[in-house]
Write a protein that binds this DNA or RNA. Structure first.
Lengths: 193, 193
DNA sequence: GTTAAATCTTAACACTGTTAAAATGCCACC
DNA sequence: GGTGGCATTTTAACAGTGTTAAGATTTAAC
């Protein structure tokens, strides 16, 4: 077991892990490419080979976060969502944002991401599709989101998304206190469609 | 008229103007303290005397944006808000965000701002108070927002704020197309309380 | 076993925010 | 009207950043 082999082994994943660690510890402003490289025990130039630039690394982390959000929404659906799937998903969305503040921020920090990245687009569209399906019974196909006319996108799904997304970001930033008794329930009550 | 007097005259405002120019031209990632100083025709260290650091400058710009938002909400109230003040303000909120994308982003980029700044707090609380008053008929006093219990904050006002704020940010980031026919009207219809 | 590809390091560049020290101009006070 | 004090700005420097080009090292393919 040599103490430091020249090749890392799985540097790509190590950099993603390091970035998530930095985000939870010090938030977005504590992140730097070099700090992630340091934590992975590697030179400043090493990440470039795997991610191109900083946007590439952050985009990979954001993509992972969207996949985790999908999982949370699916779990909410499965666990208690038969009667009120929209409420269950709405609560899961808010919970996810409050439990993963730094990653949630990053998901929407779009000027720091490669917004054209296919994996990122697929992951974010998949999350919205789950919400859309809870409202309309129909998922959203990726090409619907690319088309400029956005045919078949349900207005109520966009409203529901806006509501829970807006509340989560406002709570995240301290503009609203999510611990206020009855507040989250009251907001979710506005989901009635 | 000397071509370049040693003293600027009103450097503070010039830096704010330069920052807003940068934001509209190249967005948040194009901003730097030095670039703002360059555009104001001044050395890199000059801004420190007026704003302390970069956060100070950005906080001043964000504060101005909140005051402009207040003005837009008041105008909506006055112009056609007697019958449906909440709808009028909701539409004005969305319009403001879409018409001032970079400034709107900055307003909520809270880790880049001095969140404790009194002027900033007052300006943002004032904007929320207008929305709150449209729902309940009562404004929000600043101390209500500081208190941990947040007494007297109306759940419906928070829901309304969440809805329009969420929609605006999602539209700003390209997750939703605000030009989709009927979409904004449909979202505003969810304001019914 | 040799060669090609993938991976990582070193070194360097231009840029950033911030600070300390010095320079400059304005203004009040005598 | 001079003169000192103060606000303002500059110069110079430091540490840190993202990114690139060149070279070093390991793996893997043939």
């Amino acid at each position: 077991m040599p103490p430091k082999p020249y090749h890392h082994g799985d540097l790509r994943q190590a950099l993603i892990d390091a970035t998530e660690e930095i985000l939870t510890e010090r938030g977005m402003e504590g992140f730097s490419m070099r700090e992630a490289a340091r934590r992975a025990g590697v030179s400043p130039a090493a990440p470039a080979h795997h991610f191109g630039d900083a946007r590439g690394l952050l985009t990979a982390v954001a993509t992972g976060a969207f996949l985790d959000l999908q999982e949370a929404l699916r779990a909410a659906n499965a666990q208690g969502g038969e009667s009120k799937p929209l409420h269950a998903q709405g609560r899961a969305y808010i919970d996810f944002g409050l439990a993963n503040p730094a990653r949630f921020d990053l998901m929407w920090r779009c000027e720091a991401l490669n917004r054209g990245d296919p994996a990122y687009l697929a992951a974010s569209a998949g999350a919205f599709s789950l919400l859309h399906e809870a409202v309309t019974g129909l998922p959203v196909r990726p090409e619907q989101l690319c088309d400029d006319n956005k045919p078949g996108i349900d207005v109520r799904a966009v409203s529901a998304w806006s509501l829970v997304h807006g509340f989560t970001t406002l709570a995240r930033q301290g503009n609203v206190d999510p611990h206020m008794p009855g507040l989250i329930d009251g907001v979710l009550a506005a989901l009635a469609v």
